[in-house]
Design a binder for these strands. Structure first.
Lengths: 240, 240
DNA sequence: TACCAGACTTGATTCAGGTCAATGTGATGG
DNA sequence: CCATCACATTGACCTGAATCAAGTCTGGTA
């Protein structure tokens, strides 16, 4: 235990963390939380600041404990593919062997919990269930990526934007497509475009088209209401 | 031990399998091979036959022990995205929660080793290292998918085809881009197109263009020689 | 040897989405 | 309250890849 924390402090840090509810940390018993806390450290990242460099040696895992981050890969000439957005509870760093396969930066400020690989290994040795939980996390991510590859390889711009809107719905606590849904889109259009493999102009045009078709209403740049979520979902699946 | 196999048989089945060298099975000691064999069963799949149905309950893992398979997802109207090709040693089935996130079928005939989830769980309980190995496998796959998303979202047709050719090189035993490389492309153009998010016409045209530019020579439909692998690699990275 | 079917290539044309260029909007600070 | 700046929208035009439509090649078979 460090000089700056009593065991109580350390225990509490993990006990009240979103990761405790949502992430891999749930596989550790209350009584062992101090061990978990001792292998991890908190950090905050300011808006737009990068905390994982693509290609850098992969030394840490991260859990997003607050705010949002974006994950991306770059081509040498600067073209960017955003491979995902992550928020509270999301586990980061599995897509890496010796070096990270992606970069990551905060989207409007984020807090993270960092687990050095060595510490994580001590944890998995002590709590075998954690290793299983990590694999589950990787599996979930793999399944998502299958869908995203289909989006990028085979869907039209309209279908991509519709899929994005529906995805956002499903990140809400009670996803329900049978009634209008209010969405907050915290990322700029550039990020949406780079996530969907489109340009900002195309994203903008399609949102405008959806508005004209009364599928959505745009209350402000970040605040969109899906008026007919089920129709949008149909478009998203390419069945329109 | 079953009626049809002596323990020796069972042991040998795993001992001489490519999975033993290349796949997750390498995390189990020689002396325990019989246990591994007892939790798995061999199967062969004829060319074009499907053995994983997208959306079906995920009950098994598979190791490719011979031949090749293709993995894909479908849209309701039949558009297809091939998410990967797998050959000897490849572990399949991690991209699934309760149901498979992808379909799989043999490409020119394949042999597989099937591990029911229940049996795999018994194995991971007995051999904790195996669970770690599964996670590594998932991480490797995740890293590959990052690159594939960038290809599908941000690369031009020319860059995609070049990337595909270079990827094929790297599947050879001694990848070396400093000299001409002979490649065998066992998949039809349709599969290449569905893998790259293009049409067969575009794939065909670009291969023809590469031929005209003396970057490759096409000895037969399946047999291509990369004359200037490093130039192709440069194109693949978008730096041409 | 000729025929056929399926896979591939090539060419002509179209079109979805990109590019380039204004214009609009809304938050911040003087 | 206006100027500024970054971001978003809209419009005109262009282009890379899709689509549509012939050919061509290959291997199997009779």
């Amino acid at each position: 235990m460090s000089a700056s924390h009593t065991p109580e402090d350390v225990h509490d840090r993990c006990a009240h963390c979103v990761g405790r509810r949502l992430s891999v940390c749930s596989s550790i018993d209350d009584c062992d939380l101090a061990i978990l806390a001792n292998e991890s450290s908190r950090m905050t990242v300011a808006d737009g600041r990068s905390f994982i460099e693509e290609g850098a040696p992969a030394n840490d895992f991260f859990v997003v404990t607050g705010g949002r981050v974006k994950l991306f890969t770059l081509l040498p000439d600067g073209r960017r593919q955003i491979t995902g957005f992550a928020e509270g509870g999301h586990f980061l760093g599995l897509a890496a062997s010796t070096s990270y396969a992606f970069g990551a930066e905060a989207l409007g400020g984020a807090t993270l919990c960092r687990f050095p690989h060595a510490g994580m290994q001590r944890l998995t040795e002590r709590f075998p269930n954690l290793e299983h939980r990590l694999r589950e996390e990787a599996s979930r991510e793999l399944a998502l990526m299958q869908a995203r590859m289909t989006l990028l390889g085979r869907k039209t711009a309209r279908e991509r934007v519709a899929t994005f809107l529906i995805e956002r719905c499903q990140h809400l606590e009670k996803p329900d497509l049978s009634h209008p849904v209010e969405l907050d889109l915290p990322m700029p259009r550039t990020d949406i475009a780079d996530y969907l493999g489109l340009t900002i102009e195309t994203v903008s045009r399609i949102l405008s088209a959806f508005k004209k078709e009364k599928l959505i209403s745009i209350r402000s740049i970040t605040h969109i209401t899906l008026l007919m979520p089920e129709r949008i979902s149909t478009i998203a699946e390419g069945m329109e």
